[in-house]
Amino acid sequence: MAGTALLSVRNLTVEFDGRAGRLRAVDAISFDVLAEETLALVGESGCGKTVTGLSLLRLVPQPPGHIVAGEVLLDGEDLLALPERALRRLRGRDIAMIFQEPMTALNPVFSIGAQLGTVLRRHQGLSRRAARARALELLEQVGIPEPARRIDEYPHQLSGGQRQRVMIAMALSCGPRLLVADEPTTALDVTTQAQVLAEIGRLQRELRMAMILVTHDLGIVAESCDRAAVMYCGRIVEMRTTAALFSTPHHPYTVGLLEAIPRIREERLADLPVIPGRVPDLAQLPAGCHFAARCPRATDLCREVVPAPLPTADGGLVACHHPYP
């Protein structure tokens, strides 16, 4: 991993209008994405990982969402301060995004070819004919069987795995430098997931593209990501290389999560280790460290003072008053 940052996120803070006032979904988080690396944003539902991914391209619906602070720097330019027109040019060209459910992102009344063609004509100024030829090429590249027939089909005629491949083709059509993939395989079966992840990895290497992979699945983090940022209640609690995170997790939440995931083991356990309690409601977040109420190491300090992210010996970060060694 070369150390140059492609994208720098600083102090990003996102809030939502709730019934009982503003809820803070993302709380002053900062991270870099290095060129060609895969960074995981990992956590349970409600931790803010999806909102973070959407905010990078200002895709959070506003209102009810509000990006209240922060910078997202690409080539020294703050994407959060760009006029809408400039941002629209940049979406797809420099940074592209794919989602969990491709059916919601694809338009049901246009054929696959028409939708791919629109993107190619708009962003790359291709002619109708050239766009179709390129679309065909892209479908082939992402492993759609019989692309010449599929190109004139509609989204509902494809299986879930094929729809996700079409989304990937569309996202990669303009050769972006960064792909933001939000739970791209969560809706797929495990054997299809393996196919699609392998495909994304291959394309990423070929196109020398960086990726932010938003996921709840630590198995996918372990197998597909270089680094990971573990999120809890809107904050990054630990950010390390994948190898370091899994071998010596420092934050008690990371430790708990790694122990709690049901995994295929040599021996069946009598009882799965669990994290007691549950994720607090965003409307009633405790002061101090949000994890304190569930944490075996918590002290009074944790219940009062928010732990700042501190560098670890291996170049990562951990936000905890009493981290594991």
């Binding site: 795995g161 495990v190 997931q193 392998a198 372990a222 995931i261 995994r263």
Partner: peptide, 25 residues
């Protein structure tokens, strides 16, 4: 065998041979 090999394992130190099945159900 393919099903078991396709499950992502939360253990980056352990590399396994993955059987990627062709096609779909």
């Amino acid at each position: 065998q393919a099903l078991l090999s396709a499950v992502p394992m939360p253990d980056p130190a352990r590399r396994r041979r993955r059987i990627v099945l062709p096609g779909e159900v």
